[in-house]
Design a protein around this nucleic acid. Structure first.
Lengths: 131, 131
DNA sequence: CTTTATGCAAATTATTTGCAGCCAA
DNA sequence: TTGGCTGCAAATAATTTGCATAAAG
């Protein structure tokens, strides 16, 4: 598990979904891949900056937007700022812990009284029992 | 079902939760009571304005914040802007339809694999079958 | 080459804060 | 009376847009 940017992998992925594989998009995907929890555009920008890979904040916003559009990332509209997370290709919905921000991807349907659940916010098992 | 401001009722309610029953808070509660779906602070402000009851936008923000703090309203952090809705006193969680914004209050627990659901976003039965 | 993406600066939009005056209890 | 509440103006903060330049296919 190296920490180098896996350029080829992201370029292929971007090609698959039909958008240009630019340097910036690869970098953003790389940062997203390092996180299991959703992160904000500002955070992506900051991490790339620290990494010595300057990128326009505007570009980060436009990139996560594009990535969301083609289904590679999921948007979590938080209070104050939106956060983003890489998404598996399979159809799924999410369980999001409001304490630790853990995201669980679930493939099976969760329905309650005819209501079709897509995003479930709550408290995960670990946080419930006190971490 | 009259449309006049039910001042006494809101004053009592505010007294119960231990905050001052000001003119503005009563007005905000009145607007909230007219809506079954969550509405934004800006919308509350606009409706009071049209109604000829000018109120500072700042006050609206501070009011919904206070009301949320004492448990009278629930905050739904949407993309872009937060929305607010009057809440019943009983312990409950919500099902929120992303299409029609319908909110269903549910008293019984909804848990999935040890995850405790508090807010469930998805599609309501009506919208699923095409309105 | 041609189209699409980038990035800076400026504009928008939602929300918060400072502070002086007002009002409910 | 008096501490909490209001509202204006100004400050923040996140996100978007215009436009000229750069890079991908």
């Amino acid at each position: 598990m190296c920490k180098l940017v896996d350029t080829a992998r992201w370029q292929a992925l971007l090609g698959d979904v039909g958008i240009r594989a630019t340097t910036q998009r690869v970098l953003v995907l790389d940062v997203l891949a390092e996180h299991t929890r959703p992160i904000s555009a500002q955070q992506i920008h900051a991490e790339l900056y620290e990494r010595g890979e300057p990128i326009g904040l505007t570009t980060v916003y436009r990139t996560v937007s594009s990535l969301a559009e083609v289904g590679l990332v999921h948007v979590f509209p938080q209070a104050g700022e939106a956060t983003y997370r890489l998404c598996g290709p399979a159809r799924h919905h999410h369980l999001i812990c409001r304490i630790c921000r853990l995201v669980i991807e679930r493939s099976q349907e969760d329905d309650v009284d005819g209501f079709h659940a897509e995003e479930i916010y709550g408290i995960c098992a670990a946080c419930r029992r006190g971490t």
